[in-house]
Each structure stands twice: as C-alpha cells, then as structure tokens.
Lab assay of single mutants.
Amino acid sequence: QLNLPENTDDWTKEDVNQWLESHKIDQKHREILTEQDVNGAVLKWLKKEHLVDMGITHGPAIQIEELFKELRK
C-alpha cells in the first residue's frame, strides 16, 4: 500500500520513484527521473519523447506515460 498524496501535483520526486517502483519500473529508469527532478507536477506533462530524451528506452517510456494517463482518470 503506497502512502502518497492524493493530488499527484503534490508528489515529490521520491513519491514518483515509489509509485514507479510499485509498477515494476526498473531502477535505472527511476533513477533517471529522480536525477532530472521529476516530481508529480512535472510527470503529468511528460510525453514519451521527453522520457526518451532523458535516456529512457522506448518501451519503459511508453509504459510510464500510459501508467500516468491511467492514474489521472
């Protein structure tokens, strides 16, 4: 059970990391997002292209984008 703020805009980069870990996103990809200071407010704007530009491969980038879309519903 994750204990994250209800509003994703309030998520810290550590919260984002924890959420991605719960969805089995590889540590190396989570570390990239942490290094790039991606918090919840930033995550909602990220598209696959942004994630790929940061060095995340296409498969996980699509997965992260789709997971966040599902979360926002």
Rank of each mutant, 00 (worst) to 15 (best):
Q1E: 10
Q1F: 06
Q1T: 09
Q1L: 05
Q1N: 11
Q1P: 01
Q1D: 08
Q1I: 13
Q1V: 06
Q1M: 07
L2P: 03
L2V: 04
L2K: 12
N3E: 03
N3W: 00
N3A: 00
N3L: 03
N3H: 06
N3Q: 03
N3G: 01
L4A: 04
L4E: 01
L4M: 07
L4R: 04
L4T: 07
L4Q: 01
L4P: 03
L4K: 03
L4G: 01
L4V: 08
P5C: 03
P5Y: 04
P5T: 04
P5E: 10
P5M: 11
P5G: 02
P5S: 07
P5I: 08
P5D: 05
E6M: 09
E6D: 10
E6Q: 07
E6W: 02
E6K: 05
E6Y: 08
N7T: 05
N7L: 08
N7S: 08
N7G: 08
N7V: 09
T8R: 05
T8P: 09
T8G: 07
T8W: 13
T8K: 08
T8V: 11
T8H: 11
D9M: 11
D9L: 10
D9Y: 08
D9W: 09
D9T: 10
D9S: 10
D10A: 04
D10S: 09
D10M: 11
D10N: 05
D10C: 12
W11L: 03
W11M: 09
W11T: 06
W11F: 11
T12K: 05
T12H: 04
T12W: 00
T12C: 03
T12E: 05
T12I: 00
T12V: 02
T12F: 00
T12A: 07
T12M: 03
K13F: 08
K13C: 09
K13N: 08
K13D: 05
K13Y: 11
K13A: 11
K13P: 08
E14C: 02
E14V: 06
E14H: 06
E14Y: 04
E14R: 04
E14A: 06
D15M: 07
D15R: 02
D15G: 01
D15W: 00
D15H: 04
D15N: 09
D15L: 02
V16M: 07
V16A: 01
V16G: 00
N17M: 07
N17R: 07
N17C: 11
N17W: 08
Q18G: 06
Q18H: 03
Q18W: 06
Q18P: 00
Q18T: 09
Q18M: 05
W19P: 00
W19K: 00
W19A: 02
W19F: 09
W19S: 00
L20H: 00
L20W: 01
L20R: 00
L20V: 02
L20I: 02
L20N: 00
L20D: 00
E21M: 07
E21N: 02
E21Q: 05
E21W: 04
E21Y: 11
E21T: 06
S22C: 09
S22K: 11
S22G: 07
S22R: 03
S22M: 07
S22I: 05
S22A: 08
S22Y: 10
S22P: 01
S22F: 09
S22D: 03
H23W: 05
H23R: 11
H23A: 07
H23P: 00
K24N: 09
K24G: 09
K24L: 11
K24Q: 11
K24P: 05
K24R: 07
K24Y: 14
I25V: 06
I25W: 01
I25T: 05
I25R: 00
I25Y: 02
I25N: 00
I25D: 01
D26A: 04
D26E: 06
D26H: 03
D26N: 10
D26R: 04
D26P: 10
Q27E: 11
Q27A: 08
Q27N: 03
Q27L: 06
Q27M: 03
Q27G: 06
K28D: 10
K28W: 07
K28M: 10
K28Y: 13
H29Y: 08
H29M: 13
H29Q: 13
H29E: 15
H29S: 14
H29N: 13
H29L: 13
H29I: 12
R30M: 02
R30Q: 07
R30W: 04
R30L: 11
R30T: 04
E31L: 06
E31P: 01
E31G: 07
E31S: 08
E31C: 07
E31T: 04
E31D: 09
I32R: 08
I32E: 06
I32K: 05
I32C: 11
I32P: 01
I32M: 07
I32Q: 05
I32G: 09
I32V: 07
L33W: 02
L33H: 01
L33Q: 00
L33M: 13
L33D: 00
L33E: 03
T34K: 04
T34S: 04
T34Y: 09
T34I: 12
E35W: 04
E35I: 04
E35S: 11
E35Q: 06
E35M: 06
E35F: 09
Q36F: 12
Q36N: 13
Q36P: 01
Q36C: 06
Q36L: 13
Q36M: 13
Q36A: 13
Q36V: 12
D37C: 14
D37I: 14
D37R: 15
D37W: 13
D37Q: 14
D37E: 10
V38G: 06
V38L: 07
V38H: 03
N39H: 08
N39F: 01
N39K: 10
N39P: 09
N39V: 01
N39E: 05
G40R: 01
G40Q: 01
G40I: 03
G40T: 00
G40L: 02
G40D: 01
G40E: 02
A41R: 12
A41K: 12
A41D: 12
A41E: 14
A41M: 12
A41T: 13
A41Y: 14
V42M: 15
V42Q: 15
V42N: 14
V42F: 14
L43S: 11
L43F: 05
L43E: 02
L43P: 02
L43D: 01
L43R: 02
L43A: 15
L43K: 06
K44E: 12
K44C: 09
K44H: 13
K44G: 13
K44A: 13
K44I: 07
K44D: 13
K44M: 11
K44V: 07
W45P: 11
W45I: 14
W45L: 14
W45R: 15
W45Q: 15
W45A: 15
L46E: 02
L46W: 06
L46C: 05
L46A: 12
L46Y: 12
L46G: 02
L46P: 01
L46R: 02
H50L: 02
L51Y: 02
L51N: 01
L51K: 01
L51Q: 02
L51R: 02
L51T: 05
L51S: 02
L51F: 03
L51V: 02
L51C: 03
V52H: 12
V52C: 14
V52P: 01
V52Y: 13
V52F: 14
D53G: 08
D53I: 08
D53P: 06
D53Q: 09
D53A: 12
M54R: 12
M54A: 12
M54F: 14
G55E: 07
I56T: 13
T57A: 15
H58Y: 12
H58N: 03
G59R: 15
G59H: 15
G59I: 14
G59P: 14
G59E: 15
G59T: 15
G59K: 15
G59W: 13
P60S: 15
P60Q: 14
P60R: 14
P60F: 13
A61Y: 00
A61Q: 04
A61W: 00
A61V: 01
A61T: 02
A61C: 12
A61D: 03
A61R: 03
I62R: 15
I62H: 15
I62V: 13
I62D: 15
I62Q: 15
I64V: 03
I64T: 03
L67I: 03
L67Y: 12
L67Q: 10
L67E: 05
L67F: 12
L67K: 15
F68M: 09
F68V: 11
F68Y: 05
F68L: 13
F68Q: 13
K69P: 04
K69H: 13
K69T: 14
K69I: 09
K69W: 13
K69L: 12
E70T: 07
E70V: 09
E70F: 09
E70P: 12
E70I: 12
E70Y: 06
E70H: 12
